[in-house]
Simulated scan of single mutants.
Amino acid sequence: MPIPRRVRSFHGPHTTCLHAACGYNNFDVYIKTRWLYGFIRFLLYFSCSLFTAALWGALAALFCLQYLGVRVLLRFQRKLSVLLLLLGRRRVDFRLVNELLVYGIHVTMLLVGGLGWCFMVFVDM
């Protein structure tokens, strides 16, 4: 049974790539694909470093706000405790709030340190 000509001339899925490479010098195709690869890699690294820097900056600002907030809250707690003692009332227990704030600051500090390291890795690349 004879095989039709269209089927016999089909070389596989890379035929169009091979025919496209025959039109140019192979080195030109290599240079163009290398340039495109380099440009895509640059876009990836640049966008990742911008995202990491923005996230790191936001976390650093959050850490500063938490630090200042703790100082203000501790001052408020002291004044409230003194006021309640002067009024003859029981003082309020702020232990849980203080622990949650300290844990929050620890987590933020770890994230700032880790993302700062990631930022430096992307800058070094």
Rank of each mutant, 00 (worst) to 15 (best):
M1D: 12
P4D: 10
R5N: 05
R6K: 11
R8T: 08
S9M: 10
S9L: 06
F10A: 12
H11Q: 15
P13C: 15
T15G: 07
T16L: 13
C17E: 07
L18G: 02
A20P: 00
Y24F: 10
N25V: 13
N25R: 12
V29I: 15
Y30P: 01
K32H: 04
R34C: 04
R34M: 03
L36I: 07
L36K: 14
L36D: 05
L36V: 04
F39C: 13
R41C: 02
F42H: 10
L44C: 04
L44F: 11
Y45I: 15
Y45L: 15
F46I: 00
S49H: 15
F51W: 12
A53I: 04
A54M: 11
L55T: 09
G57E: 03
L59A: 04
L59M: 08
A61V: 06
A61Y: 03
L62P: 00
L65S: 09
L73I: 04
L74D: 14
R75S: 13
R75P: 01
F76L: 11
F76D: 14
R78M: 07
R78S: 11
K79G: 02
K79M: 05
L83F: 15
L83I: 13
L87T: 11
L87Y: 06
G88Y: 02
R89L: 10
R89M: 08
R90V: 09
V92Q: 07
V92G: 01
D93I: 01
N98S: 14
N98W: 04
E99D: 07
E99N: 12
L100C: 14
L100Q: 14
V102M: 06
G104R: 00
I105A: 09
I105L: 09
H106F: 12
V107E: 02
V107K: 01
L110C: 08
L110V: 07
L110S: 09
L111M: 04
G114M: 15
G114C: 10
G116E: 01
W117M: 13
C118S: 10
F119N: 03
M120S: 11
M120A: 14
M120T: 14
V121K: 08
V121H: 10
F122V: 11
V123G: 01
D124T: 14
